[in-house]
């Protein structure tokens, strides 16, 4: 990609200003707050961080949050890739219909969607009733307030974030490459793994980054479907800030969480670059 010319950079100024005012500045406040020993913010100290890392309870919450987001991302990828592929190969008229269907979930509020899932996953919910009617089970299986339930809902709620970038890259791939591969004797799977997959890496990585960060921080879905017994970082931060009124600690947890999510995103980006280089080399 050609780098931005000298005359174009001012176009980024409004966004940069917004970013500085609405993200960088508050983050600095958060960082400063986290470096205080007590709520009155009198003396600088790293006590909050020592408290966080000195307690396996906090570490287990951090780990389970990242692991939850990874699992939800994989589920999204598993279901989202085929959908994106079908969308990219569909005739133009169908494409817009399919994309609309994919985007549909974003058109309702996440709170509404999540409450709808409570109705679906509940003990007396749609799913349990259907499974019982089909004699698959005779006792309702617990889905609400389980991690399986949270993953299923996260995957559905965040699916468009995976499908849209994938769809964009997949539809840009030159179809002649696939034909050429077939003409040279490669099977469908070989073509997929040697041609399609490497070329779609940028979209795949973009989708994974979006879904991962959205799932890790999905406060509404995590708390409504997971309840208070499955504690993930957003609920932990909320409880410390609002329930316990312990702002310095809540700030420290937030900083740790932000950095942890950024590390995963950085790692995904690295994978993306390797994949892209691989794709370019072919």
């Amino acid at each position: 990609m050609a780098s931005a010319t000298r005359d174009e950079w001012p176009l980024a100024l409004p966004l940069a200003a917004l970013f500085i005012v609405c993200f960088v500045a508050p983050f600095c406040v958060l960082l400063a707050l986290s470096l205080h020993a007590d709520a009155q913010a009198r003396a600088f100290s790293v006590a909050q961080y020592a408290k966080f890392f000195g307690d396996t309870f906090n570490l287990s919450i951090l780990w389970s949050t990242l692991w939850l987001a990874i699992k939800a991302t994989l589920v999204c990828l598993l279901f989202g890739y085929p959908i994106a592929w079908v969308c990219s190969r569909a005739p133009a008229r169908w494409q817009s219909v399919l994309v609309f269907v994919v985007v549909l979930p974003i058109l309702t509020s996440v709170v509404v969607r999540t409450f709808a899932w409570i109705v679906i996953l509940g003990r007396e919910g749609v799913l349990n009733h259907a499974l019982r009617a089909l004699h698959v089970i005779d006792q309702p299986v617990p889905l609400l307030f389980t991690e399986t339930g949270v993953i299923a809902v996260l995957a559905q709620v965040q699916m468009p974030l995976m499908v849209l970038p994938l769809f964009a890259t997949l539809s840009r791939i030159d179809r002649n490459l696939g034909d050429a591969s077939a003409a040279l004797g490669a099977g469908a799977w070989r073509t997929f793994f040697r041609i399609t997959l490497p070329l779609s890496t940028p979209g795949l990585v973009a989708g994974c980054i979006l879904v991962f960060s959205a799932c890790a921080t999905a406060f509404v879905t995590q708390t409504l479907i997971g309840g208070a017994r499955l504690v993930y970082m957003p609920l932990h931060i909320y409880q410390q800030a609002i329930g316990a009124n312990n702002w310095p600690f809540a700030a420290a947890i937030s900083v740790v969480f932000t950095i942890a999510v950024m590390i995963v995103i950085y790692a995904l980006n690295r994978v993306g670059r390797t994949g892209k280089a691989y794709g370019d080399a072919r």
Binding site: G122, R123, E124, G125, T223, L224
Partner: peptide, 20 residues
């Protein structure tokens, strides 16, 4: 015995409505 600990009161009402 506890089947659910609601993280907020709004969700608690839903648990009764859904007979959870």
């Amino acid at each position: 015995n506890v089947g659910a600990v609601a993280a907020n009161l709004g969700a608690y009402a839903t648990l009764w409505q859904q007979e959870q």
